[in-house]
Amino acid sequence: MTYAILLFFSITDFSMGKSLFKSSTRTADKFYVYRTLEKVFGESNKSILVKNILNSPELFGGGCLPYNVSMKSEKFDLSDENFEDRCFNNITEIGSPAFVEMSVIRQVKTENTCNEILKDTKNIRHALALVSLSESSPIDLKSVKRTTNLFFYKKKQRETYSKIIVNNQIKTWRDVLLVLCKSPEWQIL
């Protein structure tokens, strides 16, 4: 009988079988983050975005295309042709992953970038103007929904954030844009 019980242990298994796949969070890469923020808040934020986003492929994903770049000197210059394609750390960055997981540090870096950009009201105005709003526009559900469109392409997310922003009675457009910019969800495809 003992043998039967032991046999039972050896031949049966309550496991569901081994897994031959791995699901990573399909995030957007540094180029998408850079271009989105540049588009939403304006080209004048280039240096902030290069410093925080483009310079960190290990956090945001996306390699480099060094042959795209024409460099004038060995010191990096924003005016170099196709400077965004530069390998920021070293040449082997060309093999960096196309996208990486959403990490805590990535989120913190994004938040700081948003904070820094949104210190300047010019950037707020730029963003609002894209959706035909201004700083004096009322912060109601309809207007907020338009601004969510700057970041989110998924309707469910736009609605969720719109409702939450309005329900929390967020009073300034800066704070509205901060909520949207700082949320990690717009970087997830």
Binding site: V108, N112, Y161, I164, N168, I170, L178, V179, K182, E185
Partner: peptide, 20 residues
């Protein structure tokens, strides 16, 4: 990044994001 983040008072913003 963490210190900078903390220097900005954004309780209401963070609350909204957490809720979302």
């Amino acid at each position: 990044p963490f210190i900078e983040r903390a220097s900005v008072n954004s309780t209401i913003v963070d609350k909204a994001i957490s809720e979302a």
